[in-house]
Design a protein around this nucleic acid. Structure first.
Lengths: 130, 130
DNA sequence: GTCGATGCAAACAGTTTGCAACCAC
DNA sequence: GTGGTTGCAAACTGTTTGCATCGAC
């Protein structure tokens, strides 16, 4: 079972206040600069544990790192992520089940899992007309 | 411009014959065991160049590596990938544009790019009833 | 007191890069 | 001959792991 240590509390606190997806290194950097001494390995281990426990959503950044975000929604949904600042908004789940099932059957695939990733430029990062 | 070297020809040949997504290391391993001497770095560089040239599709494996597949289709489409053997089939593009645009606008996002990844068990890998 | 969590540093895996030799054009 | 390509090995980045210590329950 998971223990409520100072380090994990700090990580959850940080993620609770963030709408962004953050990398393990970003989490570590943020905590360190907030005077929360924590080892990078601890961040990785905690992030893994929390992900396994369903507390966090993970995404692949596209350049080699994983991004984490607190997300307690249990219903299917997607994240629209700003590729500049990492800001994310929740979007309702796309009703793809029928479409996926139909095509999966056609090709003999079973137990199909669908991942939808959306990324764009948020209003703060978009060039405002120039 | 790209030069038609022996190494790139071998890589393209290998990928042409494969319906699977392969990692750089798998490509290297396959070529090496086929008596095609080639350096791992060359595989990485060629794979990058070919991807940039639009000759290959890339996918993230979920455990730290990128997977490549030859794919000359230019129309939007998706890949349904077997998580055991890596076999992949092309699926037509899901008409998400309107849905995405509508939600993106609502949240002030522009230039939104959609990635749909499907993975399941192909008929060869699925437990056939036991 | 027990056993999971932490910190440190070394180990790892995948990938990239510097540089000289090489070869397609 | 020129300039992109290759091979090698070393460097890098993100991540994991071994082990002794620490601390939550």
């Amino acid at each position: 079972m998971q223990r409520a240590t100072r380090q994990r509390a700090a990580i959850l606190e940080l993620l609770k206040d963030s709408t962004q997806f953050l990398s393990a290194q970003q989490v570590h950097g943020a905590l360190t600069s907030q005077d929360h001494a924590i080892a990078l390995a601890t961040v990785y281990r905690a992030l893994q544990a929390l992900t396994r426990a369903g507390e966090l959503d993970v995404r692949y950044s596209g350049d080699g790192e994983h991004l984490y975000r607190r997300c307690t929604r249990s219903d299917p949904h997607h994240h629209l992520l700003c590729r500049h600042c990492g800001a994310a908004v929740d979007l309702p789940g796309i009703p793809l089940e029928q479409w996926v099932t139909r095509h999966a059957q056609k090709h003999g695939f079973t137990d199909v899992h669908t991942t939808v990733e959306l990324d764009g430029e948020c209003s703060s990062c978009a060039p405002s007309g120039g």
